[in-house]
Amino acid sequence: MTRTLAEMRDGDVERYLERIGVERATITTDLEGLTRLQRAHLVHVPFENLDIVFADGVPHDQAAAFDKIVTKRRGGWCFELNGAFAGLLDALGFDVILLGAAVLLGGPSTVIDHLALEVSGGPDDLEPHLVDVGFGDGLIRPIALNRSGPQDGGNGAYELLPSPQGTTLARHVGGVPEAQFRFKRVAHRFDDFAPISTSLQTDSTKHWSTKPFATRLLDTTPPGRVKLTTDRLEVDEGAGATSRDVTSDEWDGVLAEWFEMRRPGPWPT
């Protein structure tokens, strides 16, 4: 059984908020507050797979994810990022449901391989919203789950498309909806994602274990993004993207400069 963060202590909440640059006294349990928390998390906590490529992988454990993100000031993948963020939101008074989703970026799929969040309630009686801090270049603000038509996701228009198979989150690109992932509004336990977490880390045909990356949102207007891969750095500070090659000798310095992290192990041989 994995450890959870169902009852995050006040001290843990303060440390988590400090990690994402937010003062607790300024947080409200409404859409504005949730939007601010999501954006702050995306800016300060990278989406990255470094422990899977360079170390012994990541445990499927919410408390371990909290320690990695907050104490070690690292990032993680969807199970860690959304798993820990769910604990923070719960402690702040939001109602949080863990959603299982099938990623569709590579084409049709029915494999539940992504964890997203449905967030509602709280003292301000927030309507249900889809929240995600673990999908790379995805939503950077909540979108309403009970609403049809395009919505502002902070970095473009998104739409929720219903079907018998579930609800598909689509991003409008050139006016055309492109599927991101499909989910059903069914509550999951964190433990439900343990088998796919293990599978993705050990499958050598997947990019998780073979291609290191780190990416995070840049707090610019319009919002930008930085992404470091095996041999390339891409930076968009809101006024257009630039990219350059990165050698293995440069890689650690670039990682430290843009993400304030250290590579957790040697390069795979």
Rank of each mutant, 00 (worst) to 15 (best):
S120T: 10
A84Q: 00
A91T: 01
I143E: 07
Q151W: 04
L130D: 06
D90S: 15
L98N: 01
C78S: 07
L130I: 06
D132S: 12
G83Y: 00
R74F: 01
A144K: 13
D95Q: 15
L88E: 04
I140C: 06
D113S: 15
R73F: 01
K72L: 15
F66I: 02
K72I: 03
A64Q: 08
L117P: 07
S120K: 13
L126M: 04
A157H: 14
G93Q: 04
L98W: 02
D90N: 15
A91P: 05
G107D: 11
F135R: 11
I143C: 06
W77D: 03
D137P: 08
Q62K: 00
L115N: 05
Q151V: 08
R147I: 11
V133Y: 12
V70R: 00
L81G: 00
G107C: 09
G100A: 10
R74Q: 01
F135H: 10
A86F: 04
R74A: 03
D137W: 10
I140K: 11
F79H: 08
R73Y: 04
A144Y: 11
G136E: 11
G122H: 04
L98H: 06
G121E: 05
G107Y: 02
L117R: 12
A86P: 06
G75A: 03
F66V: 07
P142W: 11
G106Y: 10
V111T: 15
F94W: 08
C78A: 04
C78R: 02
L89M: 09
L99G: 00
V111A: 13
N146G: 11
P108T: 12
I143H: 07
G122W: 01
L105N: 04
G83D: 05
A64H: 02
G154E: 04
S120R: 14
G154L: 11
N155R: 10
A65V: 03
G149P: 08
G154D: 06
A64F: 03
L130P: 12
E127L: 13
E118F: 01
G154T: 06
N146Y: 13
I112P: 04
V103S: 09
F66H: 02
G122Y: 05
D125L: 12
G153A: 06
A101F: 13
I140E: 09
A63L: 13
V96K: 09
G138F: 10
L117K: 13
R141Y: 01
